[in-house]
Amino acid sequence: MIKSELKLIILLIITFLFFYRDAFTQSINNQYSFTRINLDIVGNKSTDELSRLWDAQKGFEGSVEMPFYYGNIQVGVRYIPYKENEYFYHDFSTFYYFAGWGKELNLPFHFRWYNGFKVGAYAMAFHDDSLTIYQKDETELAAGLNSRVSVEILKNIFLNAAADYTAVFTHKRIELFLISAGVSYSFKTPIWLKEFLK
């Protein structure tokens, strides 16, 4: 039986190989040439045990994206609060600090399609005064895949719709299926930032 980690790794490898065909055709001189800032509202569509025991609220995700080798690199943070429901477990907030990489393809009518993966630290803060300082926070590894369709509505301004799968490697796995919508703004990367990144 293939473990879930192995399945995820295979998916990541397939994602990489899919874009690897033109990997060496794209000039790396293009690196960091533009910066794109993404802001999205995130909704939870998970059906796992976590979503049964807590009610996930609307969340937010902000990220910065720029060309990096054969695709785009992303760094960002996603915030989703969880509220108690009929099970009365105390509330907690999650902050997912991630880095990701993917490839964006141009589609007709100014549409673009980005597919990639994210890896990061999934921090959880539990809101209960009865907890000790050591029990109030926890951080765990998380990784997943994401897909985004965007359209340029004004010069350098995009509307986005995305789907995201994130696995959090807790003892009992958390598997999140998320959808999001938002806007992006793209601009030429300042020279000082390019120099810093090299």
Partner: peptide, 19 residues
């Protein structure tokens, strides 16, 4: 460094496991 396998929010449920 951080090892995976923390209980996370399940620490307060029937799925509790060692930290």
């Amino acid at each position: 460094g951080d090892q995976t396998g923390d209980p996370g929010p399940y620490s307060f449920t029937q799925y509790k496991s060692p930290n």
